[in-house]
Simulated scan of single mutants.
Amino acid sequence: MTRSVMVELVGGRLSLALLVWPLAVLVLLACALLLTGAFSLLTGSYGLSAPDVLAVLRGTLPEAVAGTVVWEFRFPRLLVAMLAGALLALSGAILQGVTRNPLADPSLVGVSQGASLAVVSLIILAPQADGALRPFAAFAGALAVAALIQAMSGARTTGATMRFVLTGIGMAAFISAVTSTLLTYGRIDGALSALGWLAGSVHAAGWNEVRALGLVGAMIVPAATWAARPLGALRMGPEVAVGLGLAVSPARVGLITLSVAAAAAAVAAVGPLGFVGLVAPHIARRVAHSGPGLHLALSAATGALMVTLADLIGRAAFVPLQIPAGLVTALMGAPLFVALMLRAQSRQNL
Rank of each mutant, 00 (worst) to 15 (best):
R156A: 15
R156G: 14
T157E: 12
T157Y: 01
G159V: 08
G159R: 13
G159F: 11
A160I: 06
T161W: 02
M162A: 13
M162S: 14
R163E: 12
R163P: 01
V165H: 10
V165S: 03
L166V: 15
L166T: 06
I169F: 11
G170A: 15
G170V: 09
G170L: 12
M171V: 15
M171Q: 03
M171K: 00
A173V: 09
F174T: 13
F174Y: 11
F174E: 02
S176H: 02
S176G: 13
S176M: 03
S176R: 08
A177E: 10
T179G: 11
T179N: 15
T179D: 09
T179F: 02
T179W: 03
S180M: 07
S180G: 15
L182T: 04
L182V: 05
L182I: 06
L183Q: 10
L183W: 05
L183Y: 02
T184H: 05
T184V: 11
T184R: 07
Y185V: 12
Y185P: 02
Y185C: 07
G186I: 01
G186T: 02
G186Y: 01
G186N: 07
R187Q: 14
I188Q: 14
D189F: 13
D189M: 08
G190V: 05
A191I: 10
L192T: 13
L192C: 04
S193Y: 01
S193V: 06
A194E: 01
A194V: 00
L195K: 11
L195C: 07
G196W: 02
G196P: 01
L198D: 05
L198V: 09
L198R: 05
L198W: 01
A199E: 09
S201H: 04
V202Q: 03
V202W: 03
V202A: 15
V202N: 06
H203E: 04
H203V: 12
H203D: 10
A205R: 02
G206R: 06
G206F: 07
G206Y: 08
W207G: 00
W207D: 01
N208G: 15
N208T: 13
N208M: 09
N208Y: 04
E209G: 07
E209V: 06
E209K: 12
R211P: 03
R211T: 08
A212S: 14
L213M: 08
L213D: 03
L213H: 03
L213C: 04
L213Y: 00
L213S: 05
L213Q: 03
G214C: 12
L215Y: 08
L215K: 05
V216A: 15
G217W: 10
A218F: 05
A218K: 04
A218I: 04
M219G: 15
I220E: 00
V221L: 15
V221T: 11
V221C: 01
P222W: 07
P222G: 10
P222F: 10
P222S: 12
A223L: 14
A223V: 10
A223K: 03
A223Q: 10
A224P: 05
A224E: 04
A224M: 13
T225P: 00
T225S: 10
T225N: 09
T225M: 14
W226T: 00
W226C: 00
A227N: 06
A227C: 03
A228F: 01
A228P: 07
A228V: 05
R229G: 15
R229Y: 07
R229V: 13
P230A: 09
L231N: 04
L231Y: 11
L231K: 06
G232V: 07
G232D: 06
G232L: 11
A233G: 05
A233C: 12
